[in-house]
Amino acid sequence: MVRFSNWCDSAFEVVGSHALQVISARAADTANGCVAVAAIVSEHYAAEVQVARILRRLGRPKAAAFIENKLPTTKSIRSGDLGEILATEYITGETPYDVPIKRLRWKDHRNMAMRGDDVIGLMRDQATGRLHFLKTEAKSRAALAGGVVTEAREGLDKEGGLPSAHALEFISARLMEAGEDALADAIDDALLKYGIAPQTVTHLLFTFSGNDPGNILRTNLQGYAGGYPQHYIGVRIDAHGAFIANVYDRVIADANHG
């Protein structure tokens, strides 16, 4: 778990009826943040049980090569992937929602971005057993600009603001393969039996940037006129590009040396 509070400061505010949070890495603790993030990156690309099996059968050099071959090599894809990874970690660590699969494991190619909803968080209503959904768009830029946030906003508004059926079908299929039948059935019920009610959906717009995202996110959030609850989260690390490079370098080093 990334545990942002261990290396970041956080500022929260209410914008209308919605929430805005800016999470800023402390300069003195950024190296600790790099270690924390690097520790969870490989599991987003490869199942731990598969890595452990390769390690047991073929040894550390082959296991390290397997992990390294899963990691993107281009700066832009690394940036986008890490934004999605941080969003996933934020959801699982800071919200009541869960992200039941790590979808980067199913990339078509390590230097290609995945299509569809970036992340979907799920939460079961204990009284009814039905699901609530956190539809998420994640963006990563060294210098975040208003147009990027507008693009994320447009992504959240697709499908009438609901999570796409294609994305949920993908999650359901992966859960079924993993033997998580009950949660897969709950997704299928939402899609095929009950329908997804708008009141069960919340939006999360997540950014990862080198500049302060506060004003850009606040302005976009003030202009939102839809009916879904909104949570805008901006993670700021001043040395954005260097942080990303250091994270991936450390993932490779840790895989080789343990």
Results as ranks from 00 to 15, higher is better:
Met1Phe: 08
Ser5Tyr: 14
Ser17Glu: 13
Ala19Trp: 01
Ala19Glu: 06
Leu20Lys: 02
Ser24Gln: 07
Ala38His: 15
Ala39Ile: 02
Ala39Asn: 04
Ser42Glu: 12
Ser42Lys: 15
Glu48Arg: 15
Ala52Gly: 14
Arg60Val: 08
Lys62Asp: 13
Ala63Leu: 03
Ala65Cys: 08
Glu68Met: 04
Leu71Arg: 02
Pro72Gly: 09
Thr74Asp: 00
Arg78Cys: 03
Gly80Tyr: 08
Thr88Cys: 11
Thr95Trp: 09
Tyr97Met: 09
Asp98Arg: 08
Ile101Glu: 12
Arg105Gln: 13
Trp106Arg: 13
Trp106Thr: 10
Trp106Gln: 11
Asp118Asn: 00
Ile120Trp: 04
Ile120Val: 15
Gly121Thr: 07
Phe133Leu: 01
Leu134Lys: 10
Lys135Val: 06
Lys139Arg: 11
Arg141Tyr: 15
Arg141Ser: 11
Ala142Pro: 13
Ala152Pro: 00
Glu154Gln: 15
Glu159Ala: 02
Glu159Ile: 00
Glu169Thr: 08
Phe170Trp: 12
Ala173Met: 10
Ala173Tyr: 03
Arg174Gly: 09
Leu191Ile: 04
Gly195Asn: 01
Ile196Glu: 10
Pro198Gln: 10
Thr202Asn: 13
Thr207Asn: 03
Ser209Phe: 09
Asn211Leu: 03
Tyr224Met: 02
Tyr224Arg: 00
Gln230Met: 15
Gly234Asn: 06
Arg236Val: 05
Asp238Phe: 11
Ala239Pro: 12
His240Trp: 07
Ala245Gln: 15
Val247Met: 03
Val247Thr: 04
Tyr248Thr: 00
Ile252Asp: 15
His257Met: 02
His257Asn: 12
Gly258Leu: 00
